[in-house]
Design a protein around this nucleic acid. Structure first.
Length: 224
DNA sequence: TTTTGTGCTGTGGCAATACA
DNA sequence: TGTATTGCCACAGCACAAAA
């Protein structure tokens, strides 16, 4: 069970800490635990609840109406919204939810919905990369655990690897050769994999060496 | 149709306190 | 010691209903 500060919730939901406190006071939206010095701490259930509320609120639901709904009704309305009006912000929040809950099904559903609607490339440009930027900020602030970050990164890697593997574009007559790698100490390969996908799709040759490659090992490859 | 009053909501600012 | 968090009050903007 993770523990979050009010600032963490602000980062996840985009709702200002000030507003969260007012919601708590006026509407009893959340009942966070308190430290011995009265600082609020929130758990995963609180975070899920406030993420759902923030989605409804952003879609025009008044906070005073939202609090009259049961947890089940809130979830149903969020599901309806995500099916009917899958805007990028909501999709990013769905992915955040999938990451926090480590729920593969939510991830696949959101991802596939976006691919169906916008295509694979635009899903990465307008959903996955903005999502990863958000993850980066949450990572820096310590709001998410390494396990959560790795969980979602690996799901994204899988999607890219499958997509790369399934490309059957014919090689161009003037196809170029690309050597793809990340230098020593660099492990985050999602951008590199997406580049691999694009280059292969455009009909060029690729040699993919992955992450953390000592630079001196590349020279023989280039000569060969 | 326009004006007015009321309630709802989010935000700014402040002082006190906790934390790193 | 600087920053973050708390609780509180005040206020502006907006929506909506009632009255003129």
């Amino acid at each position: 069970m993770s523990s979050y500060s009010i600032k963490d919730l602000e980062g996840f939901t985009g709702i200002k800490a000030h507003t969260l406190r007012i919601w708590e006071k006026r509407y009893h939206v959340l009942k966070p635990q308190r430290t011995s010095t009265n600082i609020r701490t929130y758990d995963d259930e609180d975070l899920k609840h406030i993420l759902n509320i923030s989605i409804l609120n952003r879609h025009g639901y008044r906070i005073s109406d939202i609090i009259k709904l049961s947890e089940k009704e809130i979830c149903e309305k969020v599901m309806q919204l995500s099916q009917r009006c899958a805007d990028t912000h909501s999709q990013i929040e769905n992915l955040l939810m999938a990451m926090i809950e480590m729920d593969e099904e939510i991830f696949h559903e959101s991802f596939n919905q976006s691919v169906f609607k916008s295509g694979f490339e635009d899903t990465f440009r307008y959903l996955i990369f903005p999502f990863l930027e958000r993850v980066g900020l949450l990572w820096q602030s310590g709001s998410i655990t390494p396990a959560q970050e790795h969980f979602v990164s690996n799901l994204i890697r899988q999607k890219l690897i499958v997509a790369i593997d399934s490309i059957i574009s014919p090689r161009k007559p003037d196809a170029l050769h690309f050597v793809l790698f990340l230098p020593e100490g660099e492990w985050h390969e999602i951008g590199l994999l997406f580049t691999h996908y694009l280059i292969k799709k455009w009909g060029h040759y690729t040699l993919y060496f992955g992450t953390n490659l000592p630079i001196e090992t590349i020279q023989p490859v280039l000569e060969k």
